[in-house]
């Protein structure tokens, strides 16, 4: 995969996964930009390093676990204060759709 060229359909597919509603102009622009960026990124694709373990954490010495102690949550009013569409007891969302 030395040369990647993202087609508009591929861009739309990725945008759908990311739930980004893009208009046609954005699809066209992002297709161009992503092709260029991924072209650069592809310089590492060919490196013969399949036997090298990947690094996922920069500090391997963290505290992995916490003790199981409960404390009260935030007051509901506070939890709901930022809600764009609060109901008395929760967060309202539109229908799931077909």
């Amino acid at each position: 995969m030395s040369d990647v060229e993202l087609t508009p359909d591929e861009v739309r597919h990725v945008a759908a996964l990311a739930r980004l509603g893009l208009d046609d102009a954005e699809v066209e622009r992002l297709g161009r930009e992503l092709t260029s960026i991924l072209g650069h990124v592809n310089t590492i694709a060919q490196l013969p390093i399949a036997d090298v373990p990947p690094t996922t954490h920069a500090n391997p010495h963290g505290d992995a676990l916490r003790p199981d102690a409960a404390r009260p949550g935030a007051p509901r009013a506070e939890a709901l204060a930022n809600a764009p569409d609060p109901a008395p007891e929760g967060f309202r969302v539109p229908p799931i759709g077909a």
Binding site: R19, L20, L22, V93, P94, P95, G97
Partner: peptide
């Protein structure tokens, strides 16, 4: 619907 809301909001 929710999906359209996600996409419009994030866009």
């Amino acid at each position: 619907d929710v999906r359209a809301m996600y996409e419009a909001t994030r866009d």
